[in-house]
């Protein structure tokens, strides 16, 4: 038994690409992490072949209090309330949400708009993550 465990641990190569696994897993199951008050800022996610749209409710928030960043297939959404605004009130409380997308994001494609307290983010897939159609030539 111990021998088997030993063998297993040896076959566990440190070169294993965790990112790859993460990516492949989230290809089918986009996952969500958040800190701050749960669901105070709910997110809906929409996908198509070329990218994604994320919609976040942030009533009362100003664009300059919201921070967006992408890192591979992760979208970080952060809201930081300035000190002179009442924290933990009806609409305000710092939050940080991480959305694992089923693809890696082309950094220069990220666009966001905030209107009537709704933040809409569009993200494009990197070219290499887009599905490719292979032409079949019939001889």
């Amino acid at each position: 038994m111990l021998q088997l465990l030993d063998q297993l641990s040896r076959s566990w190569s440190p070169a294993f690409d965790f990112d790859f696994f993460d990516r492949e897993f989230s290809r089918f199951f986009p996952s969500f992490q958040h800190s701050g008050r749960a669901h105070a800022h709910p997110v809906n996610l929409y996908l198509n072949q070329d990218g994604a749209k994320a919609v976040l409710h942030a009533p009362g928030w100003r664009a300059e209090w919201l921070k967006l960043s992408v890192e591979g297939n992760k979208l970080h959404l952060e809201g930081v309330v300035p000190d002179d605004v009442e924290q933990g009130s009806l609409q305000f409380g710092n939050f940080h949400r991480v959305i694992n997308l089923p693809f890696r994001v082309r950094e220069d494609s990220v666009a966001a708009s905030l209107e009537d307290g709704v933040l809409v983010i569009s993200l494009d897939k990197r070219e290499e993550d887009k599905p490719k159609r292979i032409q079949v030539n019939v001889a």
């Binding site: 986009p30 997110v43 809906n44 996610l45 996908l47 749209k53 919609v55």
Partner: peptide
Amino acid sequence: TAKAPEFEGYRKVHGEF
């Protein structure tokens, strides 16, 4: 009545509201 954003050709994969 909220103005729902409409994304043509997209499918919803996750919804919290």
